[in-house]
Simulated scan of single mutants.
Amino acid sequence: MTVRISRGVLQRILAHAANEPVREVCGLLLGSPLRVENARETANVALDPASAFEIDPATLFGTLRAERAGGPRILGHYHSHPNGSPTPSARDAVMALQPGRLWLIVARGEARMWCEWPGGAMHGAFDPVELVVDDAQDGCT
């Protein structure tokens, strides 16, 4: 599987992570199938944001309501691993409950895309996705 993302959206996600180097940051990936067109930063409401992430439920539910009303589709989410690599952790695998959702993980200025899939190659929960960065117009909310 290949997923496209604009350079501007990816740069903003990487900047979000760089601005909070000791906390996991997170947000929603929005777009059309196989193309991330936008990203929405969310608060990390995890009890220990230095080592875990939890997307703010109010933002998630608001975005789901907007999607149902014809707004942008939620493709998945992004989060950072401040002291790790851009690969899913065992903790991420436990959180993988929506097959087909995209996970963009950033660490140390690098980003990798994963698709949540039962029996996947990584921790039995994720398969790697080829991420193609292009220069198309984009936005970030």
Rank of each mutant, 00 (worst) to 15 (best):
D56H: 07
E54Y: 04
T42A: 14
G31Q: 10
N44S: 05
A52R: 12
A58S: 07
L47Y: 12
A50G: 15
F53Y: 05
F53S: 04
N38F: 09
S51R: 11
G31Y: 12
N44A: 01
A50Y: 13
A58N: 01
S51T: 10
S51C: 13
L34R: 15
A50F: 13
G31L: 01
V45S: 05
P33H: 10
V45L: 02
F53L: 01
T59A: 13
L34G: 08
A43E: 03
L30S: 07
P57W: 02
A52I: 07
A52T: 11
G31D: 03
V36A: 05
E37G: 12
N38A: 15
V45M: 03
L30Q: 05
A50K: 15
E37R: 14
T42I: 01
D56M: 06
S51A: 10
R35K: 08
A46C: 01
T42K: 05
R35C: 06
A58C: 07
P49T: 13
E54A: 13
A50V: 14
A52F: 09
P49Y: 06
D56R: 07
P57K: 11
E54H: 06
E37Q: 13
E54V: 09
V36C: 00
T42Y: 00
P49C: 11
T59H: 11
A46T: 04
A58V: 04
R40H: 08
A39T: 05
I55M: 08
L47G: 15
P33L: 11
E41I: 09
A39M: 08
V45D: 00
D56G: 08
S51L: 10
V36L: 04
P33E: 09
D56E: 13
V36E: 00
F53K: 05
R40L: 14
R35Y: 11
R40A: 09
V45E: 01
R40E: 07
E41P: 09
D56L: 10
R35N: 02
R40S: 08
G31W: 04
F53P: 00
F53V: 02
P57A: 10
L47W: 07
A46S: 09
E41W: 08
I55L: 13
V45Q: 01
S51W: 03
D48H: 10
I55T: 02
A50M: 14
E54K: 10
R40T: 08
A58T: 04
A50W: 09
T59C: 15
A46F: 05
A39F: 01
T42V: 13
T59P: 00
D48M: 15
N38P: 02
N38G: 09
N44R: 02
P33C: 08
E37I: 00
T42M: 09
L34T: 15
A43W: 04
P49S: 13
L34K: 14
V45C: 02
R35A: 12
R40P: 02
A50P: 05
I55V: 15
